[in-house]
């Protein structure tokens, strides 16, 4: 126990300042009232849905939970069920085998809800193509469920992911 405490003290606080929101990431005009955003701002629950990614974006979503980005320190946490979530973070392209699961997850998330598309493939199908040229893909997330904010990158950095989440819960400027 002594060793653990010593290591915690030695490590110190690694958390860095959170990035600002970025209006250029907004896909759909903000549709939540200010009061609700204020409420979300205090505590936001996110459900991740991998709709077909290569697992690269998930690595960076894991990283936003590390001590440097400290997502939970901002009052934002990942929850186990869409029924407990305010926001869906969706990676992909949406594979055709995940289309129904993604729609059902969206429907299971209570209103008001936000959807943030994470990564190049989630934005435009990426290297895997779209429903036009790939038999197994529905293309980007917005082809299947409404998207509020989207961030590209292969994969987007943890700062970019944080920025996208924060943009979604900020009032439109």
């Amino acid at each position: 126990m002594y060793q653990i405490i010593r290591q915690i003290i030695k490590t110190g606080i690694k958390t860095e300042a959170a990035p600002q929101s970025d209006e250029s990431l907004r896909v759909t005009p903000a549709h939540l009232q200010q009061q609700i955003l204020d409420a979300f701002g205090g505590a936001l629950s996110i459900r991740l849905v991998d709709a077909g990614s290569c697992n690269g974006c998930e690595l960076e979503i894991h990283a936003v939970n590390n001590a440097y980005y400290n997502l939970e320190g901002l009052g934002i946490k990942f929850v186990a069920s869409p029924r407990h979530a305010d926001m869906l973070l969706v990676t992909g392209p949406v594979s055709r085998h995940m289309e129904v699961a993604l729609k059902r997850t969206y429907e299971a998330t209570p209103d008001p809800k936000l959807v943030v598309a994470i990564g190049e493939c989630a934005c435009n199908g990426g290297i895997f193509g779209t429903d036009v040229d790939n038999y197994a893909s529905c293309g980007n997330i917005a082809n299947v469920i409404p998207v509020d904010v989207a961030v590209s990158g292969c994969p987007p950095t943890p700062v970019a992911i944080l920025q996208a989440i924060l943009t979604a819960i900020s009032p439109e400027k």
């Binding site: 077909g52 990614s53 392209p93 594979s95 085998h97 699961a101 895997f128 193509g129 790939n134 197994a136």
Partner: peptide, 14 residues
Amino acid sequence: LGYIHKGIEKRFES
């Protein structure tokens, strides 16, 4: 498994 089958092998061919 197979939920995220996204046609990778076919994609290689083009």
